[in-house]
Write a protein that binds this DNA or RNA. Structure first.
Lengths: 216, 216
DNA sequence: CGTTGTACCTACCAAACGGTAGAGTGGGAG
DNA sequence: CTCCCACTCTACCGTTTGGTAGGTACAACG
């Protein structure tokens, strides 16, 4: 099949959309298609079909398929990073901050499930340079968590024998994994999930003193 | 380019390999290629090239590309499940079992990094029926963890207010995430990582009593 | 020596892929 | 009324894809 050719004769009614609005639609549709089929499994034909557009017309908006993935991923990553960094600035001790960060991170993941899944799953489809352009060479996300763990250790609130990087990766693992099982309308709300996960994570790394104070 | 045609005239020397040995090579190469390029991004041409074989010849061994992915994934999943189930039968209380399960799971992941990554990353490339054929309809892996959490609660060793499924998913998240950052020869050995992660996970869900006893 | 079966090659398909060039087409501005 | 240009379509390209049909060299066996 060269081109569908069926739905030609100009989409009836002919509601023309302005550039910005159409671009937003493109990103949204592309995100959804990448989510369903993966980057390599998705074709520009799929995306164009859902937009009621022909494949070639997409190139009025994009330069390449890869650009599309890049835009999808960098948008959601930037957004998430802002959330997490904002939460790290909340008043209180390191553990209070960490709690806020975890809750914020989980909520953001749940509320942006599809783009987040694309980010976490398809990042590897980008060439290394563009990947690092997004992540920042020293893994910004991971850094926020690790820094808070270290601050917690300095304050005597986190077990000193713990490796901060390992602890950060453990917490990031459990929270990032959420994108694989969370479905809106399930048993728990994003807030509940965030709260429970924060509780587990913090108890997992805290010193005895903190735990006693926390329970009391 | 139709076919390379360069290395024709029958692979010189002509060391013929018996079926079983060649099959093992195929699986190993396919696993590696799927790991590097993803299932959709990998082509049978890639795989055949690395085997020093022509694309068409692969069909002497397989029926379809999908079969290859299925075999890779189901093998490593079965193996991992055996490890985890075996560890769950270790003598001791629920938390001792859970600790052993976590350590075993992490070690297995680290020692089978490439196939595990393919399993966790490309499972979604399989059609639902075959996916469920592997996982078992009620998520066998997750079940092991959840059961242990519930047993822990029954024994008063795990906080009663915790949702067992959520706890299991949290633990599975942090341990499964390991495939994304572990590299052999890094700072930590699989044993160390397993031990630390088990410690964090168990402290995260245990009751105060258990924690006091654990420290002492 | 002839037969048989294994393991691979040759040569090909139709379909789909990402991408390009250029021709409309309709609405808004002058 | 006209002209412009934002936006989409038509028609195509070269390449690669998963997959197939039939042939062939070789070793083992009777």
């Amino acid at each position: 099949m060269r081109q569908p050719a069926g739905r030609s004769a100009r989409r009836s009614g002919g509601e023309r959309k302005p550039r910005e609005e159409r671009w937003a639609e493109l990103i949204e549709v592309a995100t959804q298609v990448f989510y369903e089929k993966g980057y390599d499994g998705a074709s520009l034909q799929d995306i164009a079909d859902r937009l009621g557009m022909l494949k070639g017309s997409l190139y009025y908006y994009i330069q390449s398929k890869e650009d599309l993935l890049f835009d999808v991923i960098s948008a959601v990553h930037k957004q998430g990073l802002e959330v997490v960094r904002g939460r790290a600035d909340v008043p209180g001790g390191p553990l209070d901050k960490l709690e806020s960060v975890i809750v914020g991170h989980v909520e953001h993941t749940c509320r942006n499930l599809v783009p987040t899944a694309v980010f976490l799953h398809e990042l590897s489809a980008l060439p290394v340079e563009r990947r690092e352009e997004i992540l920042g060479s020293e893994h910004a996300y991971q850094g926020v968590f690790r820094d808070l763990v270290e601050q917690g250790q300095a304050a005597g609130q986190v077990r000193a024998d713990l490796d901060p990087r390992l602890a950060a990766l453990s917490i990031l693992g459990s929270t990032n994994w959420v994108y694989r099982w969370f479905r809106p309308g399930g048993t728990f709300t994003p807030e509940q999930i965030g709260a429970e996960m924060a509780e587990m994570a913090i108890r997992g790394i805290a010193t005895e003193d903190v735990l006693k104070a926390r329970t009391a």
